[in-house]
Design a protein around this nucleic acid. Structure first.
Length: 467
RNA sequence: GGCCCGUUCGUCUAUCGGUUAGGACAUCUGGUUUUCAACCAGGCAAGAGGGGUUCGACUCCCCUACGGGCUGCCA
């Protein structure tokens, strides 16, 4: 019987949810959900200077949009500071940590001297093995971990493999500051242990830190979690993803109109693979996802593929869910909401509209014929299609539409007949029809449009255009 | 500077010592079509460089180059 899997996502609330962070959260979610485990959320807000409630709210919004639900309450790391301090003092008792009275000036001087001598600037505290009797009374101190000076620390990473770090390159890191507050490196370990985290899946910028953290686990006699350090996401030019590449925040992608399911699929495949699987639902991804499928090289963002993936998910989506997400998009992008009438028409049009669009803006563009209201304004190309002859044809068409039953089967013969009577191909008839119905030359099928807006509106638009 | 990680088509990747190095996106060509898409068929396209190990290396080892990360009383 194996213990339940517990993963977590632990962002710092210093800004919006970064796309890389979103993917890290996604991997943790997928791994836990696919194994009946728990996915926890912890906010690393110990840096009081940079942490803001706005940032925390933005991160939660980002995760929610991505569809990543977490178990239990959000844990505040700052709120657990007493527990962290307690562990630091327990390390003191165990003899795996010590009080260090060195001032920052002394440390800086030590480092400068080491560097000048061409050695590693690793600080070696003179208080490491000092007799407590020699401790200065009432002087401020930090608690440092008594890290092994020799040998090596081995991180058995599920993605990076066996990483060996020589202990001499690591210093006795501070676990508790002189003001009694814990340092991140201690807080993560204590929190992960207390929360029962079994698998730590995070960015590989923490790979080196893992060695230090593992020392804390060892010092406390706690079980080390399974490590999985995933590569960061890069911009299209291969450099670290930053603002100049465009969108880096998850919420920006929502505002650009990418469907969340497509975003999840794309992000899952970015840096992870399972054979030739490309398009899949989250449920399928949960079944397939495993740590061994994660690549070791950083991946670049490719908007073309993102769009393509989103296109598949648009087509796969259920109409009701898609309509719901469309309205959420409109709100997120600050666009005008659908009117009652537009909502009804949209429901009718979604089945054929969704099959050929990638994003919500594209969907709305294809739906412009139902978003517009009379009189329909023609763009220049559409106006060209409405020459005198065409207007006459449209005019002769309207009486027949009045009596036809409103199905594609019934309309098709009427339109082909009209085209034949006028000695033109169907294509020549479709152009002015498009212009009259949508005001453009690029539109969905004329039948789909007519069926969507209905007989009355169709006839009215044709009459308008034939004037 | 030191330490750690990485490098297969333009991009995401498969391969886990023996393959015509496969798939997807993009791109190009053709087909279909009432327009744009979508769709269908096909084409182009890759193991960073150099040394080893081996009967045989994209796969294992070393060096170099390039990219990234860490090196804080930040997280």
């Amino acid at each position: 019987m194996s213990a339940q899997v517990v993963t977590r996502f632990a962002p710092s609330p210093t800004g919006y949810l970064h796309i890389g962070g979103g993917r890290t959260a996604l991997f943790n979610w997928l791994y836990a959900r696919g194994r009946g485990g728990k996915f926890l959320l912890r906010i690393e807000d110990t840096d009081r200077e940079r942490s803001t409630p706005e940032a925390m709210a933005a991160i939660l919004r980002g995760l929610t949009w991505l569809g990543l639900d977490w178990d239990g309450d959000v844990v505040s790391q700052f709120a657990r500071k007493d527990r962290h301090a307690e562990v630091a003092h327990e390390m003191l008792v165990r003899g795996t940590a010590y009080k260090c009275f060195s001032t920052q000036e002394e440390i800086a001087a030590f480092r400068a001297a080491e560097e000048a001598a061409g050695r590693y600037p690793v600080f070696l505290s003179p208080w490491r093995d000092a007799d407590p009797a020699t401790h200065p009374e009432g002087a401020p101190y930090v608690i440092r971990m008594k890290a092994p000076r020799t040998g090596e620390t081995i991180i058995d990473d599920q993605v990076q493999g066996r990483v060996v770090i020589r202990n001499e390159t690591l210093d006795d890191m501070i676990v508790l500051r002189s003001d009694g507050t814990p340092v991140y490196m201690l807080a993560v370990v204590v929190d992960d242990h207390d929360m029962g985290v079994t698998h730590v899946i995070r960015g590989d910028d923490h790979l080196n830190n893992a060695a230090r953290q593992q020392m804390v686990y060892d010092a406390m006699g706690w079980q080390v979690p399974v490590w999985a350090h995933i590569p960061l996401i890069h911009g299209p030019d291969g450099k670290k993803l930053s603002k100049r590449h465009g969108a880096t925040g998850v919420e920006e992608y929502q505002a650009m109109g990418y469907p969340a399911a497509g975003m999840r699929n794309y992000l899952t495949r970015l840096g992870w693979a399972h054979g030739d699987a490309e398009i899949f639902t989250s449920e399928e991804a949960m079944k397939m996802f495993d740590l061994s499928g994660i690549g070791r090289a950083p991946a670049r963002l490719d908007f073309k593929k993102l769009e393509n993936t989103c296109g598949h998910h648009m087509a796969m989506a259920e109409d009701a869910a898609l309509l719901h997400e469309l309205r959420a998009y409109l709100a997120a992008a600050g666009r005008e909401p659908l009117s009652e009438a537009q909502n009804v028409l949209m429901q009718r049009a979604l089945p054929f509209l969704k099959s050929s669009v990638r994003t919500f803006p594209e969907l709305l563009d294809k739906a412009s014929f139902l978003m517009a209201s009379r009189p329909i304004m023609q763009d220049s190309k559409a106006a060209e299609a409405l020459d005198t002859v065409s207007r006459g044809i449209l005019k002769s068409l309207t009486p027949r539409l009045q009596t036809a039953s409103w199905t594609k089967e019934a309309l098709e013969p009427i339109l082909t007949e009209i085209a034949a009577e006028n000695g033109i191909g169907f294509g020549k008839l479709a152009a002015p029809l498009r212009a009259a119905l949508a005001g453009r030359t690029v539109t969905p099928s004329v039948y789909d449009m007519m069926l969507t807006i209905g007989r009355e509106e169709t006839v009215a638009r044709l009459m308008d255009a034939s004037q």
